[in-house]
Amino acid sequence: MHFDTIYNQVLLVLQASILVLAALFPIVNPIGSAAVYLAMVQNVDASTQLKLAKRITMYSFVLLIASMLFGGKILSFFGISLYSVQIGGGLIVAANGWLLLNKDASKDRAAMPNPEAVLAQAFYPYTLPITVGPGSISVAVALGAHLPSEFHVRSFISPGILISSLLGTIVTCAIVYICYRWAKPAADLLGKSGTTVLMRLSSFISFCIGIQILTSGIRAYIDVLR
């Protein structure tokens, strides 16, 4: 009986971890986010980029876990709906994508950003909304609300659910770190022309993602009014 209990707990942790990873990975989209990130830090020195990647990874982990644990309660306390988060976040992501799309590369090459100023922006905008945007927060809040009922446990802080959520989030953030850490070497392999094309394309995709998040929020708001 004791062995069966342990086996069931391990199975629950594995299943929930895979569910968390499968839910977060597509919406966080580390590869696409890394391309946008690279467009913003292409003139930053390697050591600062390494520090920045570590901070973004740490902030992303904290933000996702906090959204799972407290996101629903915080939104409810302030009377904020998920569609409001989507509308506001979508506007920010779209505006950032538009700025990157119209960025003058020749002026960027002439300007060398201050490392301290770059690191001060690790949370905003590099973590929120570039890496963990409103879509990711919405998914994390939904996971925190539905995982307990999905696996028939009392609350999100039940050991099995909490451990699996930590594991799934850690794996997601580890992939974010790998993609951001090696974004510059990957761009060097592509060459100058390839990198320019990738950056413009990723900026356009970021703009489109922002519009998609915005329209999803507006659609949800219209549905509530009906």
Rank of each mutant, 00 (worst) to 15 (best):
H2W: 06
I6H: 07
Q9S: 14
L11N: 15
V13F: 06
V13T: 10
L14K: 10
S17N: 07
I18S: 12
I18N: 04
L21S: 11
A23G: 09
A23E: 10
A23P: 10
P26K: 06
P26M: 03
I27N: 05
P30K: 06
P30S: 09
I31C: 01
I31Q: 09
I31S: 13
I31H: 07
G32F: 02
V36S: 12
V36R: 07
A39D: 05
V41H: 08
Q42T: 13
Q42W: 06
D45L: 03
L50R: 14
L50C: 03
L52E: 10
A53Y: 02
K54F: 11
R55Y: 08
I56L: 02
I56Y: 05
I56K: 02
T57V: 02
Y59L: 11
I65M: 12
L69E: 00
F70N: 00
F77M: 10
F77W: 13
I80V: 14
I80L: 12
S81Y: 13
L82C: 00
G88H: 07
G89T: 04
L91S: 07
V93K: 07
A94C: 11
W98S: 06
L100W: 06
L100M: 11
N102W: 12
D104S: 12
D104V: 01
D108F: 10
R109V: 12
M112E: 14
M112K: 14
P113V: 10
P115G: 06
P115N: 09
A117I: 12
L119F: 13
Q121M: 10
P125Q: 02
Y126M: 04
T127D: 04
L128N: 14
P129W: 06
T131F: 05
T131S: 11
G133R: 05
G133V: 02
P134D: 08
S136Q: 05
V139E: 01
A140Y: 01
L143D: 09
A145S: 10
H146Y: 05
S149D: 08
F151S: 04
H152T: 06
R154G: 06
S155N: 11
G160F: 02
I161G: 02
S164D: 03
G168D: 10
T169F: 00
I170V: 15
A174K: 04
A174Q: 06
I175M: 03
Y177S: 05
Y177G: 01
I178N: 04
C179P: 07
R181H: 13
W182Y: 15
W182R: 09
W182L: 13
K184W: 13
P185S: 02
P185W: 03
A186E: 03
A186L: 15
A187Q: 03
D188R: 11
D188K: 09
L189D: 02
L190E: 10
L190N: 06
G194A: 04
T195Y: 05
V197P: 00
S202L: 12
S203E: 08
F204M: 13
I205D: 08
I205G: 07
S206P: 00
F207A: 13
I209V: 15
Q212E: 14
I213K: 05
T215D: 01
T215N: 05
T215G: 00
G217Q: 05
Y221L: 10
Y221P: 00
I222W: 12
D223K: 14
V224T: 15
L225Y: 09
L225G: 14
R226H: 14
